[in-house]
């Protein structure tokens, strides 16, 4: 479902870049996914397996780098690690912690031949 749509967008970006580079094959693909982004990593891996199958990137090795969630507590002002959006502040126990990092979903780079 959702991850399938993301996988298709990823393929789009990868194929476009590969074509611009005159590449014949993509052998590796690196993604950066934030811990607070709406992404189920396993579902995304499955989706990629399906959409990459008949493409320039068939059989490419996919590496997914996780970007840790981070936020600022609006109660005490501390910058704290955040693994879920609604978690309380680990320093003061207050709410809410406003996310400042870990929401990204990026195609980082590819290895082409």
């Amino acid at each position: 479902m959702h991850e399938m749509a993301l996988a298709e967008s990823i393929l789009n970006i990868v194929e476009e870049t590969a074509r611009n580079q005159g590449a014949v094959r993509v052998t590796e693909l690196r993604l950066e996914i934030g811990e607070l982004a709406n992404v189920e990593i396993e579902a995304l891996q499955f989706g990629l397996e399906v959409v990459l199958r008949n493409s320039l990137a068939a059989g490419a090795q996919v590496e997914i780098l996780t970007i840790p969630g981070q936020g600022q507590c609006l109660e005490c002002g501390a910058m704290v690690p955040l693994s879920a959006r609604y978690d309380p502040c680990p320093q003061c126990g207050g709410y809410p912690v406003r996310p400042t990092g870990g929401q990204e979903m990026r195609v980082k780079d590819i290895l082409v031949e």
């Binding site: 993301l6 970006i13 195609v107 290895l111 082409v112």
Partner: peptide, 20 residues
Amino acid sequence: HDHAAEGRLVSIERDILAKN
């Protein structure tokens, strides 16, 4: 390395939903 050492690394750094 699993990949052929001859590969060329292309940096993209683009948001997956950039098109949308």
